[in-house]
Nucleic acid binder design. Structure first.
Lengths: 244, 244
DNA sequence: CGATGTGAACCTATTCACAGCG
DNA sequence: CGCTGTGAATAGGTTCACATCG
């Protein structure tokens, strides 16, 4: 992200494919496409056009084609894309071919919900360990795992090759937990605590702040109630589907 | 940003303020700044410079100033911003001066965690009702609220002036629940189910897909392990802090 | 013929750099 | 003098429109 590099056909190294700088916005959507494609595959669909897939994913078809073009040419002109092949390519591009171990820190309300969330395991991620600082919680069983003390983190990260840490602690503990994760060697963090984390630049942090999401909606609510009505009452497509 | 017009001292319409098109990217950050400012206020800070606030929020100071400039001029040159005044302005801009009622549908793992999440109530939102379709759950008490049947939704939305709906159901139920929310008059939806919702264009949807977040991290993990090392081991600022 | 893949145009957002004010 | 507020420059992303190919 700090450095960016050339894309397009460079002369001497067409070896694997031209995996170049896939735009950040595209990466987020690749995950979305993959989800939709898995749904199509389950119901037995073999081929999709960019148009159909785009509609299912709620995006513009040109955008979809451009997104996919960053990975290479896996479509057939006049036909579309083979669902299974595209799934394969997207999985590969997103690094999902190797299963990734996840460590979750903070086994409160949210942490327990996350630990039990099926969506993780069903899509290539495995929560391998739960941590907490509260002695009360240590040793408890949650979602089939025993809650361990945070001091065990380095050992577990090492033993299980944890690559992603999830922080679901209260705000006050988050930075310290983050530091511990980083020290233990975790280089990707998903943060649910409402704080801005400081990390070395080699570490990626994504945050999910539920209150912020609501506030963004609140902003638009206010807008709607200010300017009365103006558009025809046409029932149509879908909203802007935020996040990213 | 579509239309831009003079700000500062315009001749005839200084009435409210020149609330114009605040860029979408800015809106998301305003909520972030507000959070940081509340922290500052709590610890008694009275004034911040754009530089200090920007660092605390993890953004570039020029960006912060530009963001704030969309709301008007509330800083003092050579000094900075008064914390309390900025909080006031941001709260107003985000529509938080009127408390907003939230209805939560789907009282499973995640739903219960959300219902009990303090971050909502502490920041101007109040979860006023919980709904589920499972007869087993109806009547249960969760986070101080009785779980009601989804069919009661229209009555509650009306009675409590619900403006935001949160969907925490399984994927299969989400679109139907969404339709019910929309029919009941809800115009903003926060969706945790891994599906793309179809809604009338007057309705705003934001989605939080936990698996997608992990996949984005996975992508970057893969990148890191591909190109070996290159940067000096300098411990520095913070990563890109995703979502929005 | 129909759908992909892509240059070019467009729009949005970020960053720079400094004028201008307190 | 220091910091805000902002035009101008740059970068990033989206959409259009069409040549190209199966």
């Amino acid at each position: 992200m700090t450095d960016q590099q050339e894309q397009g056909t460079e002369p001497c190294r067409p070896s694997k494919n031209d995996r170049k700088s896939v735009p950040e916005a595209t990466v987020a959507r690749l995950a979305l496409y993959l989800r939709v494609l898995n749904g199509l595959a389950e119901q037995g669909t073999q081929t999709v056009s960019s148009e159909a897939l785009a509609i299912a994913a709620g995006v513009n078809s040109a955008k979809l084609r451009k997104d996919l073009s960053h990975l290479g040419s896996y479509g057939t002109r006049g036909v579309g894309y083979e669902v299974l092949i595209l799934i394969e390519q997207l999985s590969q591009a997103l690094g999902l071919t190797q299963h990734r171990a996840v460590a979750l820190v903070g086994v409160g309300n949210l942490g327990q919900a996350l630990a039990g969330y099926g969506g993780f395991s069903s899509r290539g991620f495995r929560v391998v360990a739960l941590f907490d600082a509260d002695p009360q919680r240590i040793g408890q069983r949650v979602a089939g795992l025993v809650v361990r003390h945070i001091d065990d983190l380095p050992a577990v990260v090492e033993a299980e090759s944890v690559s992603i840490g999830v922080i679901a602690t209260p705000a006050g503990a988050a930075q310290h937990v983050c530091d511990q994760l980083v020290t233990a060697g975790v280089t990707s963090i998903l943060n649910f605590a409402p704080v801005v984390l400081s990390v070395p630049e080699a570490v990626d942090v994504r945050k999910v702040d539920l209150a912020v999401e609501l506030q963004i909606l609140s902003f638009h609510e206010q807008r709607k109630s200010e300017l009365p009505v103006e558009s025809e009452p046409e029932l149509a497509s879908n909203g802007f589907q935020g996040v990213g």
